[in-house]
Computed example of a mutant assay.
Amino acid sequence: MKLLVRADASVEIGMGHRVRCQALVSAFEELGWQCQFVMDRRYQAFGSTKDSFVDTEAQFWHVAEQADLVILDHYGYRAADIRRLYQHQPNLLVLDDMNDRGVFPAKWLLNPLSQDYSEQIEWLLTGSQYALLRPAFQRSYHSAGDSLSHVSQPNKLLITLGGTDPLALTLPILKGLLWSGFPKEDIQILLGANAKNADQVIALCNEQAIAYKQGLADVTPLMKQAKMAISAAGGTLFELACMGVPTVFAQVADNQTRSLEQHVPLGWCRAVRFDHVSDALRGQQVAYLVEALNRCWGDLQWQENASEIARRIVDGNGAKRVAKKVSAYFGVF
């Protein structure tokens, strides 16, 4: 059985689509599927040599027709675009977050948030049980529970603003923390391979003897060490929940709105919005975020409760659940 995944990546788009689809690919490959990513050739620098690259939609339609299943994770596709793709490949699984693209048909619709869709979707896969995490998070789920049982107490503040850090927030947040007097020995910076201003962040880390890593394939060891995190609110939200890490989220894109609307009221995280803020006001938002972090950092009871809440939400098995449900339709078990 052949599966194609359409998910572009770039500094502007981010790496989240690619990362969560890779989790799905791993789960489908375990069931014997042959999987391949398809990307717009303009973004091939962010892909793999194993990917297929297209220049036009007609080219993508052609390769889609040759597959048994197509997974679409792409905000550039509005309802009309998805309808056209569906005409070429009805075995279509669409990943969604905002439910704001209009009415469109699909065989399956996957959203880790609880939302309602039209009857043109044959099967809905919605809710946090379908959050797509890489296999490392499933393996780490129980060991994260061990740390909560005081076998190994996490003591770091993990700062991770996504694969590309599109708003270049790592540097001003780090400076704000240092200015506030936050202990630099407790800070762990995680930079994506394509993070903006990475050279400046690394220079400051070296100057201040702050721990940092860049371009890690497996981030679970750092999350296990994290007492709290400052993070972008994309797919990392579900990863941090799975690992039981209380977090102050920096919203850097509009498509993160719904997830924060559903998760902040649960009590395991806080959020500060940056995507609709002018450059002139961004420093003020950084100050709000640093203040929220410092307030939560000293509240050990909140941290304990937040960790327990977070781990109840996501168990790391979402990708396997999706792969098994979809494969059952094709008689693959």
Rank of each mutant, 00 (worst) to 15 (best):
I187G: 02
T164P: 06
S149C: 12
Q153P: 09
D165M: 07
F182Y: 02
D165P: 06
G163A: 07
H150V: 15
K175W: 00
E185C: 13
G181S: 01
P172W: 00
Q153L: 15
F182W: 04
D146S: 09
S152I: 11
W179C: 12
G181K: 00
D186F: 08
K156D: 04
L148K: 10
G162Y: 06
G176L: 02
I159Y: 05
L161K: 11
P154Q: 01
L178S: 05
L158K: 05
F182N: 00
T160R: 10
E185W: 10
G163E: 03
I159F: 03
G145A: 09
I187Q: 04
F182H: 00
P154M: 07
K175S: 08
G176H: 02
K175C: 01
L177I: 08
P183V: 14
L167C: 05
L178W: 03
D146H: 07
S147F: 07
P172Q: 06
K184M: 07
P183A: 15
P166V: 14
L167N: 08
L174T: 07
D165H: 03
G176N: 06
L158N: 00
I189K: 01
N155V: 14
I159W: 00
L161D: 12
P172N: 05
P183F: 08
G162T: 03
I159P: 00
L178M: 06
I159L: 05
S180V: 14
G145D: 09
G176R: 04
D146A: 09
G163F: 03
P183Y: 12
V151N: 10
L157P: 00
L161C: 11
P154T: 06
K184W: 05
G163Y: 04
I159Q: 02
A168Q: 05
K156N: 09
F182L: 00
T164D: 04
I173G: 03
L174I: 02
P183E: 09
L161Y: 06
S147Q: 12
P183L: 15
V151G: 09
T164Y: 04
L161W: 05
L178F: 01
K184C: 12
G162I: 07
G181W: 01
K175F: 01
F182E: 03
L174M: 06
D186H: 08
L158A: 03
N155F: 10
D186Q: 14
